[in-house]
């Protein structure tokens, strides 16, 4: 079962969540311990980091570690604000009880050294609209923290994004499949199958013969793609199919990074191809790395054997 619907009016809830943007997330926080060599050494051992610059300075990426409460928490209570606690409680109440960190952006104006005592303040920067991810449905919450040392010198900034979500699997679900192990021949995921119906069967029959077929209106001669029963220009239901020359250019494109879908290996480019016949189609680009695809790039039709059942028309790019 996938829980993709939280029991609450999404617009009303989002309005309440948005109201927390700009409010304090933490104030007057003090590092549990001063920057110290033992913690630096533990960190370096865990990371396998043998950089001789440490522990005279702390690894910059330890920034957040100096602000963490640890198992017992900060003495005298957390620096977390009431506003931030309320925001998290609001999300807990609608079932978004799980948390996962998704983004971390840090800048390091100056290195931290053993003996430095850090203080920190944070603000709630943004709350996203409801998103459904592979983990479940929830909201991204972004905070931005300033970390200071000594007499208030800024030593680090830390933007942190979490997803607060309702797990996609209920708690008493049977034990999930173990994660796929690299190196073993796991059954590879298959690409989604095309939905073939009476209106577009002719197109897929063409693909099977390695022909890219376009429709043309028999009344006004307007070419059309994708396949549809009627002409978008004049409404006529009379049409013929003809074979595209296979040449075209990249009209536009996007590069898919995230989220990854089974059977696809991001990053990859998805292009809108303008065929020489004047119609456009969405397709994959072969022969050119995803970051070398450009608008206007000439492309040539080819057929990609995806698996034993599926063959797809794709376009091979020609690097300029």
């Amino acid at each position: 079962m996938t829980r993709d619907d939280l029991d609450v009016d999404p617009d009303e809830l989002y309005g309440r969540l948005k109201a927390y943007e700009g409010r304090t997330a933490a104030s007057g926080g003090t590092g549990r311990d001063p920057v110290n060599e033992p913690m630096i050494r533990h960190w370096c051992e865990a990371m396998g980091d043998t950089n001789p610059a440490y522990p005279a300075v702390a690894p910059p990426t330890m920034l957040q570690a100096w602000t963490m409460g640890g198992l017992a928490g900060h003495p005298g209570g957390s620096a977390r604000s009431e506003a931030y606690d309320e925001l998290l409680a609001l999300l807990d109440d609608v079932g978004c009880t799980s948390v996962v960190a998704t983004d971390c952006e840090q800048e390091y104006p100056r290195p931290l050294r053993p003996g430095d005592r850090v203080t920190f303040d944070a603000v709630i920067e943004s709350v996203s609209p409801r998103k459904t991810t592979r983990l479940g449905t929830g909201y991204f919450v972004t905070t931005r923290m300033n970390v200071r040392a000594g007499d208030g010198e800024l030593v680090g900034t830390h933007r942190f994004r979490i997803l607060k979500y309702a797990p996609a699997r209920p708690k008493n679900a049977p034990k999930p499949e173990p994660a796929p192990k690299p190196g073993l021949t796991a059954d590879p995921a298959r690409r989604p199958r095309p939905v073939i119906n009476r209106d577009n069967a002719g197109f897929w029959e063409g693909v099977a013969r390695h022909q890219l077929l376009i429709q043309r209106c028999l009344d006004c001669a307007t070419p059309r793609f994708p396949w549809l029963p009627g002409c978008g220009a004049c409404g006529s239901l009379r049409w013929e199919a003809f074979e595209a020359s296979g040449t075209g250019t990249v009209f536009s494109y996007v590069v898919m990074h995230h989220p990854p879908f089974p059977a696809f290996d991001p990053p990859y480019a998805v292009a809108l191809i303008e065929l020489a016949e004047g119609v456009r189609m969405v397709s994959g680009i072969t022969g050119v790395p995803y970051d070398k695809v450009r608008i206007g790039m000439p492309v040539e039709l080819e057929f990609l054997r995806v698996d034993e059942e599926l063959e797809l028309p794709v376009f091979r790019g020609a690097e300029a």
């Binding site: 910059p60 990426t61 996962v100 960190a101 998704t102 983004d103 971390c104 952006e105 840090q106 800048e107 390091y108 290195p111 995230h258 989220p259 990854p260």
Partner: peptide, 11 residues
């Protein structure tokens, strides 16, 4: 010296 590290997690 590291000046900025910005990461996004996926899998």
């Amino acid at each position: 010296r590291l000046r900025k590290v910005a990461i996004r997690l996926g899998a």
